[in-house]
């Protein structure tokens, strides 16, 4: 591990939230992005879980980076991630049972979310504690932002409002049933809505960033 401190804290943060924003730039972690973005609340919960797991796993991996043996490396990464995902899953089951039910198997599927293992390999195994933790936070934040953005588009077009809890509903487009003009697009809740919205979002980012290839 000779490449010590190849990044600064600032670089790590900017990398996470724009230049290497997961999902949009790296094309990693697409499965949960498509599956849980039917509502903003679900997307936010998922994003917070990913932030927690990323910070913890980056912290652990970074603190034992000098001891890692090359061929057992991936094994240790996976084990670390699986343990923290289990903890996050149990927390949701204990304190957010409704959300846990809704997200179902997508929480344990964080284990195989490529973002986390990719960051353990590319950042935490080569950088100091502080940079690794900041990188974990920034990557998780970038992921959460994308999730929430996608989820808000889908939820608003599908129902006309954003529901945080039964009492806190933010109406943006007033649906016909409530006396407004907007006819909800049910297809936005279906798989097609997820795929097409994400496809268009990627296209928009490509356009803005001016794809050089």
């Amino acid at each position: 591990m000779s490449k010590e401190n190849t990044m600064t804290v600032g670089q790590a943060f900017i990398g996470g939230v724009w230049t290497e924003i997961p999902v949009l730039r790296l094309m990693l972690g697409l499965c949960p992005t498509l599956a849980v973005t039917t509502s903003v609340k679900a997307g936010l919960t998922m994003g917070l879980c990913v932030i927690f797991v990323l910070i913890c796993s980056n912290f652990v991996v970074s603190s034992m980076r000098h001891l890692l043996k090359p061929h057992l490396r991936i094994m240790i990464f996976t084990l670390t991630i699986a343990v923290f995902v289990t903890i996050a899953d149990m927390y949701l089951k204990a304190f957010q049972p409704v959300m846990s039910e809704k997200l179902g198997p997508y929480i344990p599927l964080i284990i195989v979310n490529c973002i986390i293992i990719c960051r353990a390999e590319a950042c935490a195994a080569q950088n100091g504690l502080l940079v690794s933790v900041v990188d974990g936070f920034a990557m998780g934040l970038g992921f959460t932002i994308v999730l929430c953005f996608l989820a808000s588009i889908r939820e608003v077009l599908a129902t006309g409002c954003i529901t945080f809890s039964p009492t806190l509903v933010l109406t943006i487009l007033k649906p016909v049933e409530a006396g407004g003009w907007f006819t909800p697009w049910a297809s936005m809740l279906m798989p097609i809505g997820a795929f097409v919205t994400l496809g268009l979002m990627l296209a928009a980012v490509n356009q803005i960033a001016g794809k050089k290839s």
């Binding site: 001891l67 094994m75 084990l79 343990v83 289990t86 903890i87 204990a94 049972p97």
Partner: peptide, 30 residues
């Protein structure tokens, strides 16, 4: 070659056992 893996397994096992002990009653109640 593998002491780190073994040690971390034991540590993680302990961590899981602790959280489980702390939260399991709540989960069952839910």
């Amino acid at each position: 070659e593998s002491w780190l893996l073994l040690v971390s397994s034991v540590l993680f096992g302990g961590l899981l056992a602790l959280t489980d002990a702390a939260w399991r009653p709540r989960i069952q109640q839910n």
